[in-house]
Design a binder for these strands. Sequence first.
DNA 1: ATTAAAATTGACCGTATGGTCAAGAAATAC
DNA 2: GTATTTCTTGACCATACGGTCAATTTTAAT
Lengths: 209, 209
Amino acid sequence: MNVIQKKSRPRVKNEEAILNAAEEVFSELGFAGATTSLIAKRAGIPKANLHYYFPTKETLYQAILGKILSIWLHAAETFDDCDDPADALGRYIRAKMEISRSHPLGSKIWAQEIMHGAPHIQGSLETTLRDWTESRVKIIQRWVAEKKIDAIDPHYLLYMIWATTQHYADFEHQIGVLNEGRALSDEKYEDAMETVTRIIVQGIGVSGG
Amino acid sequence: MNVIQKKSRPRVKNEEAILNAAEEVFSELGFAGATTSLIAKRAGIPKANLHYYFPTKETLYQAILGKILSIWLHAAETFDDCDDPADALGRYIRAKMEISRSHPLGSKIWAQEIMHGAPHIQGSLETTLRDWTESRVKIIQRWVAEKKIDAIDPHYLLYMIWATTQHYADFEHQIGVLNEGRALSDEKYEDAMETVTRIIVQGIGVSGG
DNA sequence: ATTAAAATTGACCGTATGGTCAAGAAATAC
DNA sequence: GTATTTCTTGACCATACGGTCAATTTTAAT
């Protein structure tokens, strides 16, 4: 192991351990409730050592938000400028559902940040999110003009997709409670993905296929 | 004013002021981030006076959760055992959307509580939510059996309704950013309600109407 | 008017938190 | 081998928090 690094520079390894621990703790307790000493403990290092890599709790939180944003942007690319609405939406919904499955903690942190009024991601999010949304709104509007889907305001469709897909991450606990106390199996999760996709695609009256 | 109360017993008035302030602060900062002194300040009373009415922060938080639950249960009744799926779902979606509009703070607090693993509402939620959900699942399953809607697992439909309607409360801020920095007007909100209802009703293949 | 109960409030306390620091240990460079 | 940089860590500090308390005022009961 550690074949890539020639020498034992602990920076990469420690930063990763800290970021992983921080993602857990921030998602469980929120920004205010998270303590640097708990994060350090879960990362297996003393608190002072954590502050050597991340001077303040804010710095660490920003690093986490950055990681989450990059994942989110990667999924956003799957919504390409494709002729077929069913295809484009299907791919996008699946990508978002897979992120909810693989990175639920990040989704929760993001959701909390938005709920608190996005105090830590001022303009950066606003510009990025706004630009992305506007470009996708235009694509959907074109579909409407070409009568490929029903006449709807694209915003409400996007909100529905975001809300539904992220629900499987953010409300993981509640879904587990309603599933006999267990997390959804892979089979059930696949079912959920297909059902969500079908309802939305059929719901906006996609004609061609 | 104060025509009902014969004498000026400050209990009711103060508890109300405290609960309103607490709802604000808890939704903005989360349970851990909220401070009793900030809540007291917003309620216009000294901190020690707040602790006279609510001995601990936990007590106050529980009171808020109770208020939210009762509102939620009230809306839940609108999902009655009706023959017509479009009618029943339409009423339920509208009721939930109206709660998101009128009580966004409560929805945010609730969402955060779930995201953190529901540490403050152990079994009470689980039983109430589970019972309600099971009874509604059966209704939807009957619709499926009677071929009034497509064959779907009712859980995924319910999750979609919850996610979408609550998104308008929980992600209020983000929606505002994408709406030229302003909150949705009443007209747009009405549009959103209709669009959401239409996509879902059409999405599950409701036949009769 | 007197008594009892309800309500108010400034001052206070123990604890926990974010963050610092200095002293030293490891690792690298020369 | 020596100098230099990177890394580690226990001890420490100022601040802020949840909650208490006793003294006082206000209101209700008789």
